[in-house]
């Protein structure tokens, strides 16, 4: 069977990405390093969202709930329990996964707008919860005062509190997440997920319990959203309710639509665009959201498949005409 992916090209892309991400901090200043760190973290968040949206056809408007749970649990454990970043991140991600299991259990029964509204509702509940539960969450102040302990054991430990060191942490988890999620969307599970997005009825009648698959996707997406949230809390040195606000749930949606939901790295491209647009506009004005809207509208009109999606589709068409190939898998 001819492959959706070209093996050699992919290995080159992976190595290239590794080298670029590895060398980048050596040539850029601290500010840009931090900007890219944030992009990598939000990239994880957006990739996890797109497992649901682009591959599963489920538009979640409450994905920030899991981002927030990951952030709060990671922060809480680091402040109150043990000084281990990996352990706190793992616990944070698992807690988010558990939260996703509960929310998903109720939400995946519904479709389309009803699913979107229910997840939005759950998201708002989580937001209200962290806002009210002052003794644990610090209320509207959030959990502050995170100190990043060194990574590893005494003589061999490394400091990770510098922006550059933390950049590498984020890059590491970004690569792991991209690798795992790419593997998942190309697995048998991924094809079934795609089938559900394409045609729910046909999929059920071939013997698939749709809810079980959607719930699995929801839980996996929750896990990685939690990881992103944990990293974000470490990056910001705090977990705050704004991480869980419904506008935070809108960010991965925007990024994904901006970059393209039907190409794997679309959401990451969207995150890059989102932050650079924000970065350059806030230089001139504080009401950057208005300008973001003004930029978003033509982008969505002229790049219906997202910026990356539309560019790749154009390139693929060109290649096809050259080689006389049939249309190939657009989901890789």
């Amino acid at each position: 069977m001819p492959r959706p992916e070209n093996k050699r090209r992919e290995i080159i892309i992976w190595i290239g990405t590794l080298v670029i991400l590895g060398l980048l901090p050596l040539i850029i200043n601290t500010y840009i390093t931090m900007l890219i760190t944030e992009i990598l973290i939000m990239g994880i968040f957006a990739l996890s969202f797109n497992l649901l949206f682009g591959y599963g056809g489920l538009l979640s408007f409450g994905h920030a709930a899991f981002f927030g749970v990951g952030g709060y649990v990671t922060a809480f454990l680091l402040i109150n329990a043990f000084p281990s970043v990996p352990a706190a991140l793992i616990m944070g991600s698992l807690a988010a996964m558990l939260a996703a299991l509960v929310v998903g259990y109720f939400s995946v029964r519904l479709d389309e707008i009803y699913f979107a509204i229910l997840t939005l509702g759950f998201g708002m509940m989580f937001y209200a919860l962290v806002h009210q539960w002052r003794s644990v969450t610090g209320g509207s102040d959030g959990l502050t005062g995170i100190v990043l302990p060194p990574l590893g054991i005494a003589p061999f430990s490394v400091e990770i509190s510098s922006p550059r060191a933390f950049y590498y942490i984020a890059a590491f988890f970004f690569l792991i997440t991209a690798f795992i999620l790419l593997k998942i969307v190309r697995s048998s599970f991924g094809l079934i997920l795609l089938s559900i997005r394409e045609n729910k009825e046909r999929t059920t009648f071939t013997g698939i319990n749709i809810r079980a698959y959607r719930l699995s996707a929801f839980v996996i997406a929750g896990l990685f959203a939690g990881l992103a949230g944990g990293l974000f809390a470490l990056f910001d040195r705090m977990a705050s309710p704004s991480m869980m606000h419904w506008t935070a749930s809108a960010e991965p949606v925007l990024m994904t639509i901006l970059g393209g939901a039907h190409v794997f790295l679309g959401p990451v491209a969207g995150a890059v665009l989102f932050f650079f647009i924000e970065h350059f506009i806030t230089k001139f004005t504080d009401v950057w959201m208005i300008f973001l809207g003004a930029i978003l509208i033509p982008l969505v009109i002229f790049f219906p498949e997202g910026v990356l999606g539309t560019l790749l589709a154009g390139k693929r068409r060109g290649r096809k005409i050259k080689n006389g190939e049939g249309p190939d898998d657009t989901h890789s």
């Binding site: 593997k183 998942i184 190309r186 697995s187 048998s188 599970f189 094809l191 079934i192 999929t203 071939t206 013997g207 698939i208 698959y213």
Partner: peptide
């Protein structure tokens, strides 16, 4: 679906 292989999260079909 028929062979119940959809649970394979990481094996490329």
């Amino acid at each position: 679906a028929h062979y119940g292989k959809g649970a394979s999260l990481f094996s490329p079909y």
